[in-house]
Design a protein around this nucleic acid. Structure first.
Lengths: 202, 202
DNA sequence: TATTGATTTAAACATTTGATTAATTCAAAT
DNA sequence: ATTTGAATTAATCAAATGTTTAAATCAATA
């Protein structure tokens, strides 16, 4: 029995291709993805990729743009929220961002590897340079604790949220972690990371 | 003027190929690397790759094995050092590990991406499963603070050391960081990370 | 129903890519 | 100097891969 690639759906052909491209590109990266992989994943004829999207590269750019947004623009607004305290920001961001990453565990490693391969062309995708340092989040941080470098603090925050997803393959292969315990670990981190970040401020 | 790929050297042909393979594989990943790239980087005839190493895959396995060792076996012994206190371990590991990463900034993203693409086959490269949890480091941690999950703590430690190198392309493109300030940031972290880790234990 | 244009398909094309081959060069041993 | 086997090279091969083409199918409209 030939394996069913995807449940038939009422998506448009164009959208089916895009969705398949998301799946395959995210899993295998640009260089590792063959246009035939995407066609098969979508259950569609190979020529349709070029019919709807001109080229592999154009299709990739669309997916990449989406994924960069998904990874970054998620945090940006929360950092600039005027209403919330620094502690609240840490809690809200950690909780929602980790939830998002649990649903998209391949997202960080995908975006970060691809950016490395093509650093220049992603300058455009990123909004104004130095945005992070001008946010309310950083202001609040500077007020509360003057002797910590805001970049270092922010880097710690991002590290602790994102790195586990990048290291997941190692943790499951080498360490005492399987798919379930990994998710459990991550859920715990939603509350733990803000706690640890606050400890660093004392 | 044709660009000089590599300074002539007295390395053996076999070693020249391996060195070129290290450079190109680490920068572009397995799928993104063409055997002709490696030959050109080495300044050698393409056929020599197969003459000395049978295939691209075999050559890759050799390089990958090296790089996995470089990334992991560096920490393993230090974690099990009987002589040093927990605080000392944090300081020694952070300092030497970050130094190593400054010299090999592409190492983490390379190894972690490739493992994702081929998780199974790297189970063999990693030593005994659950090694980390049996180390002296973890014992000391359990004694000092019983209410913290050792995996979480260790994950934080690794996150804060490794993640900045993975995020480097973004930091330089989007943020207020260039190559010099990045290295400076990382040097500061050699002393800061142990300090933060200790704060988490209070 | 016939027509028209969009959509889909199988086949083919040109290039890239990993690998091999057969000839040549080189260095050491006789 | 000759011989011998290893090392190197240019050329080639076969498969993979991104793309295009021309024909077939479909759906809407006249």
């Amino acid at each position: 029995m030939a394996k069913q690639i995807k449940a038939e759906s009422n998506l448009s052909t164009e959208e089916k291709i895009k969705e398949a491209a998301r799946v395959v590109f995210t899993k295998k990266g640009y260089a590792g993805t063959k246009t035939r992989d995407i066609a098969e994943e979508a259950g569609l004829n190979l020529a349709l990729l070029n019919y709807y999207f001109r080229s592999k590269e154009k299709l990739f750019e669309i997916v990449m743009m989406e994924k960069v947004k998904q990874l970054f623009s998620f945090i940006a607004p929360a950092l600039n929220e005027e209403e919330t305290s620094l502690d609240e920001k840490l809690e809200l961001i950690a909780s929602s961002y980790i939830d998002m990453l649990i649903k998209n565990p391949d997202l960080p490693i995908f975006v970060l590897s691809e950016i490395r391969n093509n650093a220049e062309s992603f300058g455009k995708m990123i909004q104004s340079k130095g945005y992070v340092l001008k946010t309310h989040f950083i202001q609040q941080l500077a007020e509360q604790k003057k002797d910590i470098n805001p970049i270092q603090f922010f880097l710690n925050f991002m590290s602790m949220m994102i790195f586990p997803f990048i290291a997941k393959p190692i943790l499951t292969v080498a360490g005492p972690v399987n798919d379930e315990t990994f998710t459990q670990l991550l859920k715990e981190r939603k509350a733990l990371i803000p706690k640890w970040m606050k400890m660093m401020l004392e």
